[in-house]
Simulated assay, not measured.
Amino acid sequence: MPLVAVDINLDSPQLFDITEQMKMKAQELRNKEHKKKEVEEKKLERQREKERIRASKDLTEAKRILESNEKQRYLALKKKEKEEEKRAREKIVKKLEHDKVERRSRLGLPPESPSVKPSTHLLQEKTTSLPLKSVTNAEQMRECLRSLKRNHQNDGARVRRAFETLLIYVGNIAKNPDEEKFRKIRLTNPLFQDRVGNLRGGMEFLELCGFERTEGDEFLYLPDDKVNMELLNTAGSELKSAMTNPFFGLLSV
């Protein structure tokens, strides 16, 4: 079979053209992938922003509910105080009427006409001795803890440690009311001073629990005959609430 000569051009640009097209195609794919990632990142960022907005709204709503509850408790307390004051005034009026009837009877005078009212000046003089506020132990303790947290709001760790220490004191007495060592606190104890004594409101809270200063203000002491389990349970509940409620002490009424 005879050989046939074939002219092959090794410098043909075809191979170069294919390689260049592949590079362009690869770059195009990379550009598309980059744009796709940008779109996805923007989408994720919008989603995260929506979640942040929703979380902020939830937090605002939770704060609003807490403020509303605090306000309702305050209004209920004020209403109760007004009712107590009203009952006290009515009781005084009745007592004045009764005393006047007795005086007229002793003097042999006829009963006074119902249209005559008791002396306003005398009524005011009597009512000035009445307390205008009747705050429960729980409310006093709550306000004491609020004050402690507000006075040291820049040191949350120290406030929490104070609450925890007070809870330990209260819990030890509630569990072991007959143990005097749990009912006697040396005021000069450095640990006590660091955790409770140096914080405004700390010792006041213990005094609300029944502790008294004794022996030249060297000790805080709770006499065994003044151990009130109901009061200690109330103190424990208020301390736990102060430790678990993130808005405790931040809302004012």
Rank of each mutant, 00 (worst) to 15 (best):
L167R: 15
D217N: 07
T128G: 12
T234K: 08
S68F: 07
S241H: 12
E238F: 06
E218P: 02
E180L: 13
L29A: 10
S252D: 05
N176V: 06
E83C: 12
V116W: 06
E238R: 11
L145F: 01
K78W: 10
G216F: 11
R146S: 00
A55Y: 11
L232F: 03
I65E: 13
V196H: 07
A162C: 10
S241D: 07
R48L: 05
T127G: 10
H121D: 05
Q27C: 10
M1P: 10
Q124A: 11
E67Y: 08
L107A: 14
Q140V: 00
P131L: 05
I185Y: 00
P111S: 09
L191T: 08
G171H: 09
E51R: 13
N31T: 10
I92A: 05
E230L: 04
T19I: 15
L59M: 14
V159R: 08
R30K: 15
V93I: 15
H152M: 04
V101T: 09
L75W: 08
F247M: 07
R195M: 03
L166Q: 04
F247H: 09
K175L: 12
L148P: 04
G236I: 09
A174V: 06
E83L: 15
E180V: 09
K79L: 02
N151K: 13
F163Q: 02
E20D: 15
N176C: 06
F163A: 01
A76V: 02
P246F: 02
Q124D: 12
V6G: 04
G236H: 10
V170D: 02
D58Y: 07
R48T: 02
K63L: 12
Q193P: 05
E179Q: 14
N228R: 06
K184C: 00
N228L: 01
L44K: 14
A242L: 07
Q140Y: 02
D224Y: 03
R195V: 01
L109T: 12
D11M: 14
S241K: 15
F205A: 00
E179A: 12
Q14F: 13
R64F: 09
R106H: 11
K82F: 14
A5L: 14
K57M: 07
I168E: 05
K42Q: 11
N176W: 09
K57Q: 13
I168S: 04
K32I: 01
M22D: 05
M24C: 14
I8E: 13
R54N: 11
R213N: 03
R161L: 04
P223C: 10
G171K: 12
S113C: 03
I92Y: 06
N245G: 04
G171Y: 04
N228M: 01
S134C: 09
A76N: 12
K43F: 06
L10C: 09
Q153P: 10
K184G: 00
D99E: 14
S147G: 03
P110S: 03
K126D: 05
H152V: 02
G197D: 07
A242E: 05
S105H: 12
P118S: 08
S252M: 06
N137Y: 00
K91D: 12
N69H: 13
N9H: 08
R103A: 06
R73T: 01
P223D: 12
G201Q: 03
S113H: 05
R186A: 00
R48P: 01
